[in-house]
Design a protein around this nucleic acid. Structure first.
Lengths: 154, 154
DNA sequence: TACTTTTATGTGGCTGGCCAAGTAAATGGT
DNA sequence: ACCATTTACTTGGCCAGCCACATAAAAGTA
């Protein structure tokens, strides 16, 4: 329920139709996700780290970092707050005292189902007014675009 | 150039294919936009406010707020920083001393072309590997999805 | 062995973004 | 005329995210 007023696209200064659509869609999407995450006392982004740990517990901070694609400082600070919130633990690895091994706590594991439900709900809402072919095309195009942008970025 | 390593989608915990694709695409998109904006000494989000002023100068802060769809505190702080950066001026309206009227400075106007170029470049890169039909379908679907999410949010 | 380089992580500083609470001015009701 | 309400904006607090720099430990090299 954050904003009931849809943003207006600027006529001037271009604003590529597709790019601007991506931008606005992502904002709406993220806003709704944030509202659902707040219900489980999570901040946006934290659920991504948890999901990687659900995939495999005991990951190293560098592994998480690479998988979520964020800056290491962002991950470092988020993990510290999540540790203080009791969602996970961070212990130095015995063989290499530089690396921090991250383990889920019981409270962290308890959020697996709510997070899964959140994503499923978001997906259901998103595809509600699309045909299966549109869903397929849209998702495929999204990956093509992402790859295109990433390839051009380097 | 921020991240050359593509993020890994988490297998566990669901992660709806379409929703996750939107999430990742938006991050990549925004990252590349941020890199281009940094070249003109702009921070992400500031270009949206400028674009609304290019559409029509002398807007009120409330008008900008409604059009970009952000929180009023976010707009207030961003405008203050942009004023300090010399991009715009904020003067209380004579008839209603509550409202702040925002005007572009010469430096602010000078960024119109670079910002337009930035959006055009981003658009070109995005659609490079898509057919015109795919572009049309993708953009249309994006608006359908956004409307669907927004409708469900209230 | 000692020294440099790479790797893994932490910290400071800044901005974007949200919420909640506060101020100030115009509006509306009585 | 008085006072409550609405409106426009500001401020403080918090977290996400980035960059730049700093630290510590492992690995490579002379």
């Amino acid at each position: 329920m954050p904003d009931t007023t849809p943003p207006e696209p600027p006529r001037a200064a271009g604003g590529g139709p597709l790019s601007y659509a991506v931008f606005q869609l992502a904002r709406t999407h993220r806003g709704h996700a944030a509202a659902m995450l707040r219900a489980m006392n999570l901040h946006p982004g934290q659920e991504l780290l948890l999901m990687q740990l659900y995939d495999r517990d005991g990951r190293t901070q560098a592994e998480l970092l690479e998988r979520v694609g964020l800056d290491h400082s962002t991950v470092s600070k988020s993990l510290r707050r999540m540790q203080e919130a009791g969602l996970l633990t961070r212990e130095p690895a015995p063989h290499d005292r530089r690396v921090m091994v991250v383990h889920l706590t019981e409270a962290g594991r308890a959020l697996r189902e709510p997070i899964t439900d959140m994503w499923r709900t978001l997906e259901e809402i998103s595809v509600r007014d699309l045909t299966p072919e549109q869903i397929e095309t849209f998702t495929a195009c999204a990956y093509v675009i992402e790859e295109s942008v990433r390839r051009h970025a380097r």
